[in-house]
Amino acid sequence: MDASILLILAQDGIVNGAIYALLALSLVLVFAVTRVIYVAQGEFVAFGALTYAALTEGQTPGALWLLGGLGLAGLAAGLWQGRGDHTRASILRLLAETILLPAAIIAATLILAPLKPGLITAALLSLAIITPMSPLLYRIAFQPLADAPVLVLLITAVGLHLALTGLGLVFFGPEGYRAPPFSDAMITAGPLLLPGQAIWIIAIALALMLALYAFFEATLTGKALRATAVNRLGARLVGIPTEQAGLIAFALAGFIGALSGILIVPLTTLTYDSGFTIGLRGFTAAIIGGLGSYPGAVLAALLVGLTESFASFWASAFKEVIVFTAIIPVLLWRSLRHGPTEDDE
């Protein structure tokens, strides 16, 4: 291996690592606020990517009907869960969230899609279509279990992942998609040849991390989310609506997932079920980082990205094996360092 291959592998690893870092961050966030290990987040990567790819080709994405269906299911779930204590205002809000908002997005897409919108419009539209699905799913699947043990929430998340994969097949079909990059430019920096898309990915990842930091440090909503993460009951006692916090955390995760998909689909062909293994890499990073530390998750994500890129060079057949089993020594180290955990749930 010479230096140029080394550089190319490192560059690949960092670009992928940036995506995994975004996914890992939102996983840590969702876990902290809701205790859900959001296995289904990978689906948002695939759905975002496929929706974006369809829009750039002037097609109407199948995701629209999924959004509509989830909206109706969300309405039914909301009415059922709040039975007995609905007010006119709460029903209106529920209708706005589950019917009006999806309907508006669907209408906008139906108008814009045939016009073959520009890349930025297509990206924004894709985000608008995919992001609301995540809080809807929170309402349907997790809200009734808000006080259940972590394990039950994890099994629920796995069930959700299973259902979404099947729905992905229904709404997107089995074909693989690829989309045009945001920029075709190739930038030469010394021995490095940087494709424009790689720079976009890293720039957006950094910007998003800064935005998240600002959100949690400077806004009231961000602080409420942090408070919920530290102590749900305490947060509820001081008047923070923890259900709202869950919805926001899930929306952020959906947004980040869809954005990650839009960013990588110009680099690699994705199908309806590609999301799981991508999401799982985010997971590996989040777990290596300890499921509680944001900087830890970002660093671990870079490590996962680099491991993957070098593993694909040396032992490409066993790339996945190496990436996923990397978590095992980390768990061992954690177990030895922390000693026994007395979790009483």
Binding site: V39, S335, E345
Partner: peptide, 13 residues
């Protein structure tokens, strides 16, 4: 020796 969900996550990996 870790919290319960680590075993589950370990089994996924």
């Amino acid at each position: 020796r870790l919290s319960g969900h680590y075993l589950a996550l370990g089994t996924i990996a």
